[in-house]
Computed example of a mutant assay.
Amino acid sequence: MSLASHLDELRKKHGDIEREIDEALLHPSVDDLEIVNLKRRKLALKDEIEKLAGSPTTH
């Protein structure tokens, strides 16, 4: 897998998790721990994307 296609796949997963988080926040029955875990996965993907893309972390 090329670097570009790997980055595209990571960005897709990042967007999927973002949508999962948005959906979970709309339902009060969702466990807060589940939301925290989703946010951690999303952040880990963001860090990996930035590392592979050679971009410095801005936040």
Results as ranks from 00 to 15, higher is better:
Lys12Tyr: 01
Leu3Glu: 13
Arg41Asn: 12
Arg19Ile: 04
Leu45Phe: 04
Asp32Gly: 07
Glu18Asp: 11
Glu9Gly: 08
Thr58Met: 10
Glu34Asn: 11
Leu45Cys: 06
Glu23Leu: 07
Lys42Cys: 06
Leu52Tyr: 10
Asp31Tyr: 06
Ala53Asp: 15
Thr57Arg: 15
Val30Leu: 02
Asp16Arg: 01
Leu3Gly: 07
Glu18Lys: 14
Leu10Ile: 04
Leu33Gly: 04
Leu33Asn: 09
Ile49Asp: 01
Arg19Trp: 03
Glu9Arg: 11
Leu26Lys: 15
Thr57Pro: 07
Gly54Pro: 08
Met1Arg: 00
Ile21Ala: 02
Ile17Thr: 03
Glu23Arg: 09
Asp16Trp: 01
Asp31Gln: 10
Leu26Ile: 03
Pro28Leu: 10
Asp8Gly: 08
Val36Ser: 13
Ile35Glu: 01
Ile17Pro: 02
Arg11Asp: 03
Glu50Ala: 11
Glu20His: 08
Asp22Leu: 06
Glu34Gln: 15
Ser5Pro: 00
Pro28Ile: 06
Glu34Thr: 14
Leu45Thr: 08
His14Val: 02
Thr58Glu: 08
Leu25Val: 04
Met1Lys: 00
Ser29Pro: 00
Leu33Tyr: 05
Leu43His: 07
Leu7Arg: 10
Arg11Gln: 14
Leu26Asp: 13
Glu23Ile: 06
Leu26Arg: 14
Lys12Arg: 10
Asp22Ala: 11
Thr58Phe: 09
Leu7His: 08
Thr57Tyr: 09
Glu18Met: 06
Lys42Tyr: 02
Glu18Leu: 11
Glu48Phe: 02
Arg40Thr: 13
Ile17Arg: 04
His59Val: 07
Glu9Leu: 08
Leu7Pro: 05
Pro56Glu: 13
Pro28Ala: 09
Asp22Arg: 11
Ile17Val: 05
Ile21Glu: 01
Ser2Phe: 10
His59Ser: 15
Asp47Gln: 14
Ala44Thr: 12
Lys39Glu: 13
Asn37Gln: 11
Met1Glu: 00
Leu3Cys: 07
Glu50Trp: 02
Asp47Ala: 14
Glu23Val: 07
Thr58Leu: 12
Glu20Trp: 05
Glu48Gln: 14
His14Lys: 14
Arg11Trp: 05
Lys51Leu: 15
Val36Glu: 15
Leu33Met: 04
Arg41Gly: 00
Glu9Met: 10
Ile17Tyr: 10
Asp8Cys: 09
Glu18Asn: 06
Ser55Pro: 00
Glu50Leu: 14
Leu10Asn: 03
Ala44Met: 12
Thr58Ala: 10
Ile35Gln: 03
Thr58Asn: 09
Leu33Ile: 05
Lys13Ala: 10
Arg19Gln: 12
Leu26Phe: 05
Leu43Val: 05
Arg19Lys: 12
Asp16Asn: 11
Ser29Lys: 04
Asp16Pro: 00
Ile21Cys: 03
Asp22Pro: 00
Arg11Val: 03
Pro56Lys: 15
Asp22Trp: 02
Thr57Gly: 06
Ile21Tyr: 08
Leu45His: 06
Pro56Cys: 05
Lys46Ala: 15
His59Lys: 15
Asn37Ala: 03
Lys51Ile: 09
Ser5Phe: 07
Leu10His: 05
Asp8Arg: 14
Leu10Glu: 04
Lys51Glu: 15
Leu38Val: 04
Glu9Pro: 01
Ser29Leu: 05
Asp31Met: 07
Arg41Val: 00
His27Gly: 00
Lys42Ile: 01
Ala44Lys: 12
Leu43Lys: 07
Arg40Tyr: 02
Asp8Lys: 14
Glu18Ala: 13
Ser2Asn: 14
Ser2Asp: 15
Leu45Asn: 13
Glu50Lys: 13
Ile49Ser: 03
Leu38Cys: 02
Glu50Gly: 02
